[in-house]
Amino acid sequence: MASLNLKSHLQFQRDQAVNVADTKDFVYAPPQQAIAAKRILVKPNLGYPNKAPVTVSIKVLAKVLQGLRAASPDAEILIVEGVCSALSLREICDRQGVGNLLDEGMQVLDADTLPCKEYQNLQPNPVRFKTMLAPTLLEEVDCRITVGAFKRTILKDEPLISASLKNLYGLFPRSHYKARSPNSRGQLHRPSVSLILQDVYFCIGHLFDGAVVDGDRKLESLDWKPDKGKSVELGKVFWGNDPISVDRKACELGGEKIPSYLEAIDNLRQKLN
Rank of each mutant, 00 (worst) to 15 (best):
I204D: 02
C251W: 03
P115L: 06
R185L: 04
Q123V: 02
L78W: 09
S3T: 11
L109G: 04
W224A: 14
K236M: 14
R14W: 10
P159W: 08
S221C: 12
D103F: 01
R69I: 08
I77G: 03
K249G: 00
N100V: 00
Y28T: 07
S194N: 15
Q270F: 09
L219F: 02
A62W: 04
D142Y: 10
Y119T: 03
K218N: 00
S85M: 05
P30D: 10
S164I: 11
T146S: 15
V200K: 02
V232P: 05
A62I: 03
L46Y: 04
V64C: 11
P191L: 07
I204A: 01
A21W: 03
E91H: 07
F238R: 06
T136I: 13
V141H: 08
S260W: 09
D15Q: 15
Q120I: 10
L4F: 14
A17N: 11
L168M: 13
L89C: 13
P126Q: 00
Y119L: 03
V42P: 02
E76Q: 15
P44E: 14
L234W: 08
L272Y: 01
G210E: 03
S3K: 14
L4Y: 15
Y261C: 02
G215M: 07
R248N: 07
P259V: 06
I58E: 09
Q123C: 06
E233I: 07
V60T: 05
V232W: 02
G99Q: 12
A134D: 04
A70K: 14
T23S: 15
E220F: 10
R174V: 02
A211T: 08
L234T: 04
A75N: 07
P124R: 12
I161G: 03
S221E: 04
D110Q: 08
L160H: 12
R217W: 05
I265Q: 02
V147R: 04
R90D: 15
P115W: 06
H189L: 13
D74T: 13
D266G: 12
T131Y: 02
S88A: 08
D242K: 04
E104D: 09
D157W: 10
V20D: 03
N100Q: 13
L207Q: 10
H9E: 10
A2F: 10
Q96A: 12
V232G: 05
W224C: 08
V213M: 04
K230L: 15
M132I: 11
C84V: 09
K218M: 14
Q32V: 11
V147W: 01
D94M: 07
L87K: 15
K178V: 06
E91W: 03
H206R: 13
F172A: 01
R248K: 15
M132N: 06
A71Q: 02
P53F: 08
G97P: 01
Q187E: 14
L87N: 14
A70E: 11
L195V: 05
P259N: 10
K7G: 02
I244R: 03
Y169K: 10
A17W: 04
T131F: 00
S85H: 09
D266S: 15
N241T: 14
I79C: 04
K59R: 14
R14E: 15
N19Y: 06
E139L: 13
L160R: 06
L138T: 05
M1H: 07
N241R: 13
C93P: 04
G105Y: 01
I265D: 01
V246R: 01
N241V: 09
D74I: 01
L65I: 05
A21P: 01
